[in-house]
């Protein structure tokens, strides 16, 4: 059995969290509140030192870089950083009801720039490149010897038809009946088969996580394995 205080604390917290499998109880509540409090505090401190300090303070007052690293090279001053800093400060105006409407500006800025930036990226990577990768090989796949690779050809045929049916499922201005309805239902079937395979794969990875925790409890803590 371990004599390390760190391992004992880890093991106790692991058991407290796992006790939720039985029912909600004071031990789980303790672990939950500890987790939320520690993580919120940790991320706030990390946010200050890894985001606010290097991206705002140091760019406005370059000598501040020496606070965290006395040998650091001094960067150039970047006054433009005042713009995002100003938008960030506007967020705090939410605390004053008379000026809280100004807090909508940084939110609108974040949403607008994000949507604009992602529009091109999404069309490129989620639409055009996906279609290109599906259709470029054609339907007739040749083997290395020059003949037809029947397995690869069948695979490609399934991929093309399955993708087209799945996409047809996501059209909304149609009825659920007739030929188009049948194609869409086939698309849903393709999606469910894909989800089933993905679920099984993910369950295996979750079991690996469980095994890791059990190895910690039985090995590192109790020394049984």
């Amino acid at each position: 059995m371990s004599t390390s205080l760190e391992i004992w604390v880890s093991a106790a917290l692991t058991l407290m969290v796992m006790s939720f499998l039985w029912r909600d109880n004071p031990f789980y509540k303790f672990a939950e509140h500890l987790f939320v409090g520690v993580s919120a505090g940790y991320l706030m401190v990390m946010g200050f030192w890894s985001t606010l300090w290097p991206n705002a303070i140091v760019k406005l007052v370059p000598t501040a870089a020496r606070v965290t690293d006395p040998t650091a090279a001094l960067p150039d001053r970047e006054p433009l950083i005042l713009i995002p800093l100003f938008l960030g400060c506007l967020m705090l105006l939410r605390l004053w009801p008379r000026l809280s409407w100004l807090a909508r500006w940084p939110t609108a800025f974040a949403v607008g720039t994000t949507l604009g930036y992602n529009l091109v990226r999404s069309v490129r990577s989620n639409f055009l490149e996906q279609i290109h990768a599906t259709v470029a090989p054609g339907l007739w796949i040749s083997s290395a010897s020059g003949g037809v690779d029947w397995a690869a050809t069948l695979n490609q045929l399934l991929l093309v038809v399955g993708t087209a049916c799945a996409l047809a499922y996501f059209t909304y201005t149609r009825s659920g009946r007739g030929f188009r309805g049948g194609v869409a239902r086939s698309g849903l079937l393709v999606l469910m088969i894909a989800f089933g395979a993905s679920f099984a794969y993910a369950v295996m990875s979750r079991i690996t996580l469980l095994v890791g925790r059990l190895q910690f409890l039985l090995g590192d803590w109790l020394g049984l394995v």
Binding site: F35, V36, S39, A40, L43
Partner: peptide, 10 residues
């Protein structure tokens, strides 16, 4: 909390 699993636990 910003933490993924801290949020999930809560």
């Amino acid at each position: 909390s910003d933490d993924q699993f801290g949020f999930a636990a809560r």
